[in-house]
Amino acid sequence: MNDTDFDELGPIDYLVVEFPADRKPDGSALPHLIDLVERGIIRVLDLVFVRKESDGSLAGIAVEDVGFEGRVDVTLFAEAATGLIDRTDLEEAASVLEPGCSGAILVYENCWAAPFASALRREGAQLVASGRIPVQGILAALDALDAATG
């Protein structure tokens, strides 16, 4: 990647998703992810599937071997491997997954924000804080507000 590519790069995010130990992922969320990619909203940089064993060890799972039900085209995800996820990242993911659960680690570029981020960089601005409010937190706050006004 050269400097010109970096100039047009959007913010990079990651997430770790845990799947219940008693259920295999069925792939029902993947079409939504594919849609985001096809519409140019995000670009999947890395997608790694793992399983946390009962002894706490972490084992990688090839996307083709996850065992999604139905007709899910995993080609896009099998090719998503930039190498941004390293052993340290896998160990951090292992620390948040429950034993017996499988998980997915996704690193993606927010393509929708690339023009905005690029313009800010040209102005000399830099991102100094970032965060995410979990949906559960929003719902709890709305419930509390409703109870207080109800």
Rank of each mutant, 00 (worst) to 15 (best):
P25D: 11
G70D: 13
T82M: 12
L145N: 13
I133T: 14
L9P: 00
G70P: 04
T149Y: 14
T4N: 09
F77Y: 09
R39I: 07
A104W: 01
G83F: 10
N2E: 15
L47Y: 02
G70I: 05
T75E: 12
D26A: 05
S118H: 09
L120D: 05
N2R: 13
E64L: 01
D13E: 14
A94K: 01
E8I: 01
L142K: 13
E18W: 01
S54Q: 15
G100N: 12
A147R: 15
S102C: 03
D13I: 03
F68K: 03
R43M: 08
R87K: 13
D22P: 01
D65S: 08
A140C: 03
Q136N: 05
A59I: 02
V37F: 02
L9K: 09
T75I: 03
V37I: 14
S57H: 10
L33T: 11
L127T: 11
D13G: 10
E91R: 07
S28L: 08
L9N: 00
V66E: 04
N110K: 06
V107T: 07
F19W: 09
F6Q: 07
E38T: 09
V44E: 00
Q126K: 11
G60K: 06
A125E: 07
W112N: 08
Y14C: 02
A62N: 10
V16G: 05
G27R: 07
G10A: 08
I105V: 13
S95C: 01
G60P: 00
E79H: 12
E91G: 02
E53W: 08
R23M: 12
F116S: 09
